[in-house]
Design a protein around this nucleic acid. Structure first.
Lengths: 287, 287
DNA sequence: ATCCATTAATGCAATATCGGAATTAGTTTA
DNA sequence: TAAACTAATTCCGATATTGCATTAATGGAT
């Protein structure tokens, strides 16, 4: 059973049309037809119900389409990681990080890495909260920086930084410093908050912030991205609570008021990772 | 990339010897050598470090060996399940159940299923507590009977039975009925307990049992298998707390004293399972 | 040092497989 | 009934794979 056949199957399962699929994957309809037949024969499973006119997935085909799609994807990343292992110091390392620290600790961290390992390519990505574990587990990223402590046994986790929370207000806002921040004052503000990820300690700490003031925030806007939130604050759509790190983005038209609430940053990686430079990179990053 | 090539690779990774491996998989050494070469070329990864004398896995090969082994295994079960979907009512359904109920609710359940679906083959297996979720998730079993409520979103779970706990003692033991069971009496007994699975509600309930008597059990023996525990009780090595269902195993030389503590049985299956008879089977089993 | 046994790679010829072009055979539409 | 589609099939040349025999490198024994 050739992986190529499975890819042909997935393409056909998507198009449900031999000619169009054949064109799209650059083989002839005849070849495609026989590849599918041979796949069906080897599996002992009819994948498509087809007559001379129409093609549709059989129930078993439907099942395998779903499963094969994710497994092939996983295999792809394994192969990529194997190539990285082979490449050694001249490979690529993929780091997922929250937007908030793009301008604070990331630049310093990256320059330290690239100074010590000049041949290493670094790829930066941002990963949605709910996908983070899966991405690290399946080798889609090699290092994961989170604001949440990790729960899985497959990962190691170390605290690398502690941020403060800050109130972010437009430049012309009456709030000047921490003295202005009282329950009464907060109660009259409109807030732009991050979407609340269930179980994320980051949104926890923001709730804790409000609870400590005994305030239920009036929030009509939620956004996943800090930079978007900042843009909205600048436009006067409300004020926000964000990690102090955003201060280093040096946006104009807004003011940060640091509060005594802390939020921590964790570096996560796979235990027993085989990436040849990871150990070196960790040595550079960890305190 | 052919799955066959990957199987060849795994065989060679196991033997680390071209000739022996070739013989074992019934091809010639020449063919094997070139299959491995073509696999390496397609991946762009050297899998083995070899000279004219020795073969050993490269670091990347080591990594892929590990990953491929589990993924190929997963694929195998997917293909098997696809065949089951195709077979319809004449397929096989795989049920994992705890040993304790082999003689109580299983016989009745199975005869009901096979009466209604005479063509269906049923396979019974027992799965270690820590593997249960993985087996159900990856289609190694279709139905899973547990004493713990399920936590994953991918599964559905229904309570099918409630057992009582029973004290199991040898025939000649002074304990006769529940009236004998007091804190003082329990404190003088030696216990044979199940291995404690962290997070298993079944071991929880046994702890709860002891706590309600304010007894810390003197247990020098732990065993995973109820039938083993019963054998040990019969030999006078101690007494045990087990689900009342074991009573139906009709072992001689022991006595069950039913206690008012309850332990529940849950039936678990995959949400959105495609197995063609599963819905029918569920209808037969669920209350 | 030299010879021999071992073992992975390679050259070659036979065979099997694959892919493309054209054809065939059902099905739907006008 | 004809025309337009569309998946399967046939035929044939190109390509890949296999087994056999040979080669080249290595390690151990004498």
């Amino acid at each position: 059973m050739d992986l190529q056949q499975i890819k042909y199957f997935l393409a056909l399962a998507h198009e449900l049309h031999f000619w169009k699929t054949a064109a799209k994957i650059s083989i002839t309809q005849s070849a495609l037809s026989r590849q599918i037949q041979s796949l069906e024969a080897e599996l002992g499973v009819q994948l498509f119900e087809r007559n001379k006119r129409n093609v549709k997935l059989s129930p078993a085909g439907q099942f395998l389409r779903e499963k094969w799609e994710v497994k092939l994807n996983e295999l792809e990343f394994f192969h990529q990681h194997a190539r990285q292992i082979q490449l050694g110091e001249s490979g690529t390392i993929i780091i997922a990080h929250p937007d908030s620290i793009s301008a604070s600790i990331m630049p310093d961290m990256l320059s330290r890495i690239s100074a010590a390992l000049p041949k290493l390519k670094i790829e930066l990505v941002q990963v949605k909260y709910e996908d983070q574990q899966e991405f690290l587990r399946n080798y889609k990223v090699d290092l994961l920086i989170t604001r949440d402590i990790n729960t899985s046994d497959d990962f190691r986790s170390e605290k690398i930084h502690t941020d403060h929370l800050a109130i972010v207000v437009p430049e012309n806002h009456p709030f000047r410093d921490a003295k202005n921040i009282t329950s009464e004052a907060l109660n009259e503000q409109k807030f732009i908050l991050p979407v609340k990820d269930e179980g994320s300690s980051y949104s926890d700490i923001i709730h804790q912030f409000f609870r400590s003031f005994n305030v239920v925030p009036d929030a009509y806007l939620h956004s996943e991205f800090g930079s978007a939130i900042i843009a909205l604050v600048r436009k006067g759509l409300g004020i926000a609570v964000l990690p102090d790190s955003y201060r280093f983005h040096e946006s104009t038209g807004i003011r940060f008021i640091t509060m005594p609430f802390k939020t921590e940053l964790f570096l996560n990686w796979r235990v027993d990772d085989q990436h040849p430079v990871l150990a070196n990179v960790l040595k550079l990053i960890l305190p």
